[in-house]
């Protein structure tokens, strides 16, 4: 079951390897499971498909490789974010 630590290890691995990934594959998508960088893909859905094929319904990280993470923006006040 998902908790606040879910994907923390994968995000840590991404941050540790970010400079190398940006140098080699800026704008592409990386698939990370645990401490392993599985592969790099051209599209997000390609990475997700391989992730599901390899890991099924286990958490895994698909992340766009970019210098500054693009944030999602919402103008609607329907979304409530606990402080």
């Amino acid at each position: 079951m998902v908790n606040k630590n879910t994907l923390s290890e994968e995000l840590k691995i991404y941050e540790e390897n970010k400079a190398k990934l940006i140098k080699e594959a800026n704008g592409k998508f990386v698939l990370i499971k645990g401490k392993e960088i599985v592969n790099i893909f051209d599209t997000q859905m390609d990475a997700i498909k391989v992730g599901i094929d390899k890991f099924g319904n286990d958490p895994f990280l698909v992340k766009k490789i970019e210098e500054v993470d693009q944030k999602q923006n919402f103008t609607s006040n329907l979304i409530i974010c606990p402080q």
Partner: peptide, 24 residues
């Protein structure tokens, strides 16, 4: 959660009332 799904990513979002809120 009802569909029993596990996440494939975690991002930060901005809303009118919050900045950099982490979501799966």
């Amino acid at each position: 959660k009802k569909l029993g799904l596990e996440p494939i990513g975690k991002i930060k979002i901005n809303t009118p009332s919050t900045k950099d809120h982490e979501c799966f």
